[in-house]
């Protein structure tokens, strides 16, 4: 980099992948966690109702 705010940023694809990767991991990971927790709650409610 030639300096802050001056010139052009070359490359930097690793940062782009990092950002998109982190977003994917967190969003999908959280969605999976919600799905699992929801199934667990449904199961528990089903057992208690008996």
């Amino acid at each position: 980099m030639t300096g802050i705010g001056v010139g052009v940023i070359e490359g930097g694809w690793e940062f782009v992948w990092g950002a998109y990767g982190a977003s994917a991991v967190i969003l999908i990971g959280y969605a999976v966690s919600i799905h699992r927790r929801y199934r667990a709650e449904r199961r528990r409610t089903g057992q208690g109702a008996r």
Binding site: G7, V8, I9, E10, G11, G12, W13, F15, V16, A19, Y20, S23
Partner: peptide, 25 residues
């Protein structure tokens, strides 16, 4: 949207490819 932003959107003049982070940020 991410595929579009990563593969097809043109490069920004000063920020280069790093600017593509904006499409998700």
């Amino acid at each position: 949207g991410s595929y579009w932003g990563l593969a097809y959107a043109p490069r920004e003049t000063y920020m280069g490819d790093v600017q593509r982070i904006m499409y998700v940020h």
